[in-house]
Design a protein around this nucleic acid. Sequence first.
DNA 1: CAGTATGACATTTTT
DNA 2: TGTCATACTG
Length: 909
Amino acid sequence: MKKYLALKASAGSGKTFALTVRYITLLLKGATPKEILTLTFTNKAANEMSERIYKTLLSLGEDEAYLNAIALESELSKEQILSKKSYLVNLFSNAALSIFTIDKFVNKILREFSGYAGINDDFEIKEDDVEKLSSKFLESLSLEEFDKLIDFSLFENKKYNSIFEVFKNMFEKAETIDVVNIDLSLIEIQKKEALQEALKIKEFILNCPNASNSAIKAVDYENFEELISKKWLEKDRAEEYSYFKKCSNELLEEFFSKTKEEVGNYYKLRSAFSLSRLFELYNLFKEYKRRYNSSKNYLHFDDISNICYELLSTKIDKEFLYFRLDSNFSHILIDEFQDTSLLQYKILKPLIEEILSSSEFKTFFYVGDTKQSIYRFRGGKRELFDYVLKTNPMVNVEVLNTNYRSCEQVVNYVNQAFNKLNSYEYHDQISVHKDGYVEVFEDEALLSEEKYENIAKKISELMQKGVNSNDIAILTYTNDDVLNLYSYLKKMFPSLKISTEMTSKLINQENVKAIINAIKYLYFQEGIYKENLNAIIGKAPESSFELNIDLKYRSVQESVLKIAQFLNVTDDNVMKFVELCSSYKNIVDFVYEIDELDASIENSEQVGLQILTIFKSKGLEFHTVLLLDRIKQKVANRDYLLFEYDNVNLKNIYYKIGGLDNYSIEYKEALKKEKALEFEDELNILYVAMTRAKKNMIIFKKKEKSVFDLLDLKIAALGEVIKSDNKTKNYEKSEKVIYKALDLGKQEKPIKVEEDNDNAYTLHAKYFGIATHFCLEMMNNFDEKSLHLAINLVKNRYSNYLDESDIANIKARVFQLIAHEEFLALTSNANYSKEQSLIYKGELKIIDLLVEKEGKYFIFDYKTTRDELQEHIEQVSHYEKAIKNILVNDEVYSFIIYLNEKGVKLKKV
DNA sequence: CAGTATGACATTTTT
DNA sequence: TGTCATACTG
């Protein structure tokens, strides 16, 4: 095993495999889980990582590939490894793990050293309330400071809101410059001087008998601003401007070059001035934000990394940090390294350096793929990957170029598309799976009204050819495309299940929006809200809204629910909304604060055809991928500032001004560099998109202005469509929220949803149920030891949704089950399978637990609700019938297990 | 027909 | 605020 290793892992080349193998090897070499710091980017990835390691340990020996790789890495024999299996399982499942997201880790450091930063260690983590923060900041300014802000705003012609937005951007970057004071009057003088020279050009042209109308129009400036809007100023010489050509002589060229010189001086002065002023204001803001945060005792994620970095670079010694951290990390594993931001790396650096310089057994490993770096816009710095290698020669590098994900046709197609680009570092991948299907389809419909016509056609064609709709994913560039495509396909195939993985705000979801507008209408009595409502729910304009409801005498929750019912718009999102409304004390708070609610929408249906953005698809794979061209044009980068880096070191910060590139070579170079990076981003997005498909990939390309022109993709159809494998799991079990009216009691009594978790079908109850099922699914045997292991997995996976007491609750319930005599009698010495899926009469069913004992079959279905509903019995007897039919066996018995806190009830059906 | 002016147009997102 | 389509100019 290489102690220090950087792994370049192309898409589908077994990155998680490598991480898992390394982790287990470290355990075999005597490391404890606590000292192996494993960093990922999302909670999802962190959960998946620990689950993957656990499952691999549990099934150690079954998968040859894993065993071989671990043997190779650890230099132990397979027998030696297998003899330690139960020890490893125990070790891993009973220890505190150090598998975190980077943000969680940074947060952890800050809390441990909060005293040195002068903050409380019990701070909350929250989003900033931008409106409040920006207005409070204004109030905090002295008259003089306030004037500076106003001057800047007027001078730059920028609104306060947009300036404030820039502050946030600067905050993220955490870079500073020395502020120099430049007097505004200097700029005014420079403007006058430039205009004076330019007026000589104007006079010259107007006096030139050959001047065309266009030439005369080109000199119609009265002031400096009009002057610099002229295109001809970009030329090097006057004669290069065709409308001036006929009048060009040496005198004109002299005026021209003099004007350009003066304008150039203006630009230089101006960019330095604006940059300084902006940073001056920003520093004020930064100071204020610190005060504001500490008074409210909360921090934003950006604050956390900012303060943490400041702490490390000024107040605490690196050695001190390392030895004071509550756990000593001897091993570091970093996933998706290409997405690490500069600031995050700077924070991790002392820990990495400590490992690299230690004489003990300490290791450092990072894995990533710069081709998949698509998050530069939020700080990801792909240059870091090679920079760390270059600056630490003891770190080895290995490249994974075998693709275990996609079929031959797909791999080859991607190879030929990317390896011909000369400005792109690409190494051909080797495929291991044969066949596959690639089609590039020039879709003229994409530019017309019926945009998605051909996509719908293709979907039905694929389904006819035997591709399961659950195996299809459609990838798009924007969330907007996801939504549009979703509603189109829903219209075309009403019974098709479609899921959209999106993160949009809950308050923007149609049904929720309808409710908000209804309430605002009832409260403010302003027609605009009623018309919004009519538009959303598809009523004719001016339709009336008649609901007799007294907002004042009901709780907010109650009103929201009543209105939802009245409008008939109750769904998962509305349910979540109802829950969140409990935080509003009264209707006044609600109408004024609801627009700031930051919660995200629920992913409605988790089964079916998937539509998602390419960004979201990163790290995922699909049987069949339909890849959509960029529908709308890309927007221009509207940042005020241009950060120029030399690899990872800040070289310069520029205040962006249109036209400055004509006068400053350095600025021009910086712009060019930025453009090259943007171009690389674009290629990376394409790379990510084209490496998601396992079997079939179909590209819908616009006839003109297609992003695929970057790769010069031609119309093609290669190979044969591969059918869905019958064994593919085409149903992801999740308990759908069954909507049931909450018992609201009488009007005078405000409702409390959280009072009775057992009966209300809240989201909390939903997660509780799923987690309980997950716990039972993860148990190898129905004994205490298995429960103990499984409950740890539940903790890792559901800690975001459930708290400690919930976990304890689940444990207690399951504990009672494994102590239940009848249940134990039925399951002991029997064969059983969990989450058994079966297809019966065209419908897919999942049985929680199926037990086979002495030729008899027992079906078990877990419920975490207290209610015993007829519906449960019907569901289970349906399973019973199906099993009897399929197995041709009459000895099938079914049970519903009600897992309650007070006791377990086994109900025979 | 090449060069120029003008107006319309629009992203990605975790913690 | 950069890009693109389009219309205009000489």
